[in-house]
Design a protein around this nucleic acid. Structure first.
Lengths: 210, 210
DNA sequence: TAGATTGTTAATCGATTAACAATC
DNA sequence: TAGATTGTTAATCGATTAACAATC
């Protein structure tokens, strides 16, 4: 990849991917930026600008081939391979993620779940036995791990992330209510549910006023 | 509120709130925009600009009083009241949200959980019995509901949201992998986990290249 | 060919950063 | 008072939208 793609663009790519998937499911095989813009509530200009960061996927007078475009965006997003995911923390959220089969369909394979709590270690989550957090470095040394999902208390998350990063696991899906502050070789995607809920309450508070 | 606050600013407010909460927990009672900017990895200029959308909370030569500023941002975010939350869909994620006690501490009270599946109705989640989706309109008529959390399949989410909106529930915390397309009186906060994961895989794919 | 629609350049708009006078 | 730091204006930077020639 040559010039830096702005994160505003990257944030929109998965939504394009979702709409294209639905169009494909509906048996629609071509779409113009104008029609897609109508369905997605964005400008046609933005769609064309976004896509042309990566290549000219369309054809004048025709539009875009849905299947081809979905495939290209999938490749850009790195969905053309599998990822081994381990979950750190077997609490409510960790168990929910482990049980969710939808991720597996997209190539994200949950291969292990860890917890520090002796009560939880050994229990079954999904079709996995919860492992002891003390066995983490052993596991990472023996198995390929692409992504660590952090669903543990905020007090412990940064330290566990730091250790994992040192062991060579550089991608983090962080659900803990804290920033990880990792060195630049790491990539972090935060899911801060409490912050999301606060944005909602802000909008409730300002709903009637605006 | 007078002039429109940009959504870029609103997205940052919860993070300020989180950092101020931690400073308060550490017993720190004043902070300058410069020091906060260092801790948060943003510019001091941005912090001052953001806060001055809402008022002059600081003092020249002194900085900001942590407790006061946290309180003000809390008020702006609507955290000075309670919200009754119902959860639609008692699957893995719905149960995880219902069981998570952290939200309650911040004033978000989960008061009911609904599901359409006869196997799930009547089961206990947290300290609540799962209700039948058919009783939804009766429940909403009898009880105050501020927020509906949607943790149901994407095929059903827009229809349930539309019905709730007509019943007077206008705030949605949407975990379903779809857009809701509600009339403008509704406010929607989306948590699209699949899209979040795709952004992570994009960054993994482009990690080495950049 | 005529019509449709892209890819791309230019114009506009908005958000971020820099700078500094005001003032605690 | 002198030093520190805000609130705010101005400058810069980046993202979005508009326009249209290229072309299928």
């Amino acid at each position: 990849m040559d010039k830096k793609i702005s994160s505003a663009v990257i944030k929109r790519l998965p939504r394009y991917y979702r709409y294209l998937s639905e169009l494909l499911d509906q048996g629609i095989d071509r779409i113009s930026s104008r029609e897609l813009s109508r369905q997605m509530n964005v400008t046609a200009s933005q769609i064309r600008q976004d896509l042309n960061n990566f290549g000219g996927f369309g054809q004048q007078g025709y539009g875009y081939n849905v299947e081809m475009l979905k495939g290209e965006i999938g490749k850009i997003l790195g969905l053309d391979r599998q990822y081994q995911v381990i979950i750190l923390g077997a609490g409510n959220l960790g168990r929910a993620l482990a049980n969710y089969v939808g991720f597996e369909k997209r190539g994200f394979i949950v291969s292990a779940v860890f917890d520090i709590d002796a009560d939880k270690v050994g229990r079954t989550v999904g079709n996995l036995k919860v492992r002891d957090m003390n066995d983490l470095s052993g596991y990472v040394a023996q198995n390929s791990v692409d992504i660590a999902a952090l669903t543990l208390p905020k007090a412990k998350a940064p330290e566990v992330a730091r250790r994992l990063n040192e062991m060579g696991v550089h991608a983090f899906w962080n659900f803990a209510a804290t920033d990880l502050n990792l060195p630049p070789e790491a990539v972090v995607e935060n899911v801060h549910l409490a912050e999301s809920l606060m944005r909602l309450s802000y909008n409730i508070a300002n709903l009637t006023i605006k």
